[in-house]
Design a protein around this nucleic acid. Sequence first.
RNA 1: GUGGGUAUAGCUUAGUCGGUUAAAGCGUCGGAUUGUGGUCCCGAAGACCAAGGGUUCGAUUCCCUUUACCCACCCCA
Length: 434
Amino acid sequence: MAKYITRPNGTEDITPKNIHKWLTVEKIVRETAEKFGFSEIRVPTFETTELFQRSVGETTDVVQKEMYSVTAKETVFTLRPEGTAGTIRAMLQNGMLSEALPQKVFYILSCFRHERPQAGRLREFHQFGIEMAGSSSPYADAEVILLAKNVLDTCGLKNIILHINSIGCPECRAKYYDALKAYFANATDQLCETCLGRLERNPMRILDCKSPICQEIAKDAPLILDFLCEDCKAHFDTLQTALHDMNIEFSIDPHIVRGLDYYTKTVFEFISTDIGAQGTVCGGGRYDGLIEQLGGQKIPALGFGMGLERLILTMENQGCEFMESSHCNVYLAPMDDAARPVAMNLAAQLRDAGIRAEFDLANRTFKAQMKYADKLGTDYLIVLGSNELSEQSAQLKNMKTGQQRPIRLDAHFIEDYTEISLTDLFGSPESARR
RNA sequence: GUGGGUAUAGCUUAGUCGGUUAAAGCGUCGGAUUGUGGUCCCGAAGACCAAGGGUUCGAUUCCCUUUACCCACCCCA
């Protein structure tokens, strides 16, 4: 008890008891992404630190205080704090952006951020994400949102609110920043300390402050939407029309400010109120400048990240259904040492036929084997004693119904098993084949 | 980084106003007469009561420190 080595703070073990939940969402996410024409990509868990500094942004909290970095052989590496940077880097490095555009990829990976853990926030967390590079169309924005929505719906989630906003291009944002700074300049004595710092670096974050005083002050602050240039405004309008056309409900939230520097124009979040303070299940947007910033051509792009822990948490709290875990199909119960090799051999035959088969490996008594098989939740059980071995025939017991049917142990073994299991499932093997 | 809370068997929790062998449920293992499970019944194993220090004749119970975990701020998925 005293000297166990425990897992690092903020990490989680996913045990066999819970793995079905992960398999469920991973399946949904893969199938949905593929339906939308996205292909899976896998990138390294760590990258050179410079990649994140240049993409996520030198002044962001993520880069300034949340990265796990190590120096190895004089190079500084960092465990990825998010998926976009590495993915775009990989697309560039593998020449994918010189192929026909748009390029559409998705990934399932873990990210690392050194924050204080709390409900829905871990230091190692898992993300499903997609990136689409090479489309400036607002329909691409709609498509990406649609894909996220599709995943959430397929998971069975309810009460997930979509918030969207546009933070404009660098040109309109510059004008907006000036206006914001001018507005808050009158209230510098009342703003909280963190907001005072934000005023210089990123005044938009003040709009997001939870302090009631700051909220009160920010209530009448100018809105980014009033400062959008023609192009950004048209883009945002078309996106809204597209969402309406697809019957996607959303609300415009001028206070959404993404904490990663690369975002431009559209930003969005899917928020759940069922998992505590960290309610953002999915967040993303457009980052038209990022590829160029990383040394590529001027190619517009967009994507999102979806927190799988938060997704599963919401599903649990809403009572959503998960796939069943895989369970034992046939348990072979050897009654003595003579029967053990026979059990092993029969199990091998079953496995070759694609059936999950197990047999006693703990030298349990016969009765204990029955109990154990019951705990495994096996569909069928076969008792192998001296009688069975000498007659080359045993009983295949259906553990749900208790019914037993004879099964030959010779060359007809698999044939008999198939016959009986199909009859149990469909009434008769013939109707199964129809 | 800043707050608040919690720390007793594998899990979920009692409990000791400081006093000999720390309790229950679940789980695990085994039994309930000879080769058939699930319910019920019986039994067993399993905890130096997070760690270190202090007060005391005596601490798992009180005090301090540390650590871990949880929740919130912050930030974000």
